[in-house]
């Protein structure tokens, strides 16, 4: 397919998304809009983890840590000084924290940059480790971030966290960042740098023999992935309007991992599809946690049940369809075109 055709189709798709959001904003109720917002954030998070794990082969379990950094930095920047004076009851906020204030766009970008910096610093020692150790070490990193957040009350308000974070993260901001993430990830992975990431995933030794500075490229992928994890965390903070250290437990990383594995490690379109599907399913499954009456019997709701169901589903995927929804394949415009052409021909 011609490049210019593909570009026009992409522009059309973004325009269609814009129209849909415009319609949704007016027609849908708050609950449904919240789900749409979560979808956008989850897609951002899934793409960032897929870049690190699916495309570069770095088994990282530290996503919650990077999200926490993004969320805290962004919240501190968008909470007004007056709000912060009210919030910090465990100890007065540090002057820098108290005074810092920035528009939402800058705050989200700053959250991403802070997470990227953390990714760079953590990656320097950790990316020299073999795969299994990397998973454990990044898991430890995320836990350290949480403990630190708990113990620097003059920056994070300790275990109480923040409440009343301005809810700037509406459909437009979330999908704006989502499209931006998608754009960067697609550009990156369709360039030769993307080929090099995949080469490292496929065969690190051969990549070295081809003159690839493997460590540098791992660090690059990890840092860019961390940036978007921070962005996702920042948007989530503003979307939920409250954050505290308990929110950034391993389950948060697990949710993202589930989307990435379901969609397919190494498939961008897979992450997008699974981001939509799993966010919707997770919401829909809330009913299993509520009491239900079945033919006169009153079944009590079981808290945490939907996570059990999802964990089982994930195990099934790993057992029966290891490559996920899409494997490493992508849905492309020319692929879709071919599909319609074949149908039309018959």
């Amino acid at each position: 397919m011609h490049r210019s055709t593909a570009i026009s189709l992409n522009v059309l798709a973004v325009a269609a998304l814009g129209l849909f959001l415009w319609w949704a904003e007016g027609a849908l109720d708050g609950y449904k809009i919240q789900i749409l917002n979560l979808i956008a954030v989850n897609i951002i998070l899934a793409l960032s983890l897929n870049l690190i794990y699916g495309f570069t082969g770095l088994f990282s379990l530290g996503h919650a840590g990077f999200m926490a950094i993004g969320a805290y930095v962004c919240s501190i920047l968008i909470l007004s000084p007056a709000q912060k004076e009210m919030l910090f009851i465990l100890g007065e906020a540090l002057p820098l924290v108290q005074e810092a204030h920035a528009p939402f766009l800058v705050a989200v970008a700053a959250g991403g940059l802070a997470a990227a910096l953390a990714g760079l610093l953590v990656g320097l020692p950790l990316l020299k480790l073999g795969d299994d150790y990397l998973g454990i070490a990044t898991l430890g990193f995320a836990e350290i971030v949480r403990v630190i957040a708990n113990n620097i009350p003059r920056v994070t308000n300790g275990a109480l966290g923040f409440k009343g974070i301005p809810d700037y993260a509406n459909l437009w901001w979330n999908y704006g960042w989502c499209v931006f993430t998608l754009f960067v990830v697609v550009r990156l992975l369709s360039s030769n740098t993307g080929n090099v990431f995949k080469a490292i995933r496929d065969d690190e030794i051969a990549a070295k023999a081809m003159g690839v500075n493997v460590f540098r490229h791992k660090l690059l992928s990890f840092t860019i992935g961390s940036f978007f994890a921070g962005v996702g965390g920042a948007l989530l903070a503003s979307l939920l309007t409250t954050i505290d250290p308990k929110m950034f437990l391993f389950t948060l990383t697990f949710n993202v991992l589930m989307i990435v594995v379901t969609g397919g490690l190494g498939s961008i379109t897979g992450s997008v599809l699974a981001g939509v599907g799993i966010t919707v399913l997770l919401e829909w499954l809330r009913f299993v946690e509520n009491p239900v009456s079945l033919g006169g019997f009153e079944l009590p709701g079981i808290p945490g049940m939907r996570m059990v169901i999802f964990s089982l589903a994930l195990i099934c995927i790993i057992l029966f369809r290891r490559e996920g929804l899409m494997g490493m394949r992508e849905i492309t415009w020319s692929g879709l075109g071919g599909l319609f052409a074949r149908k039309g021909g018959r």
Partner: peptide
């Protein structure tokens, strides 16, 4: 043989060219 098995034939050669990019 150590090829980048998931990549296309062309991509394999492009990866070889990366260091001069």
């Amino acid at each position: 043989i150590r090829l980048f098995g998931n990549e296309t034939v062309l991509q394999n050669v492009l990866i070889g060219g990366h260091l001069r990019q």
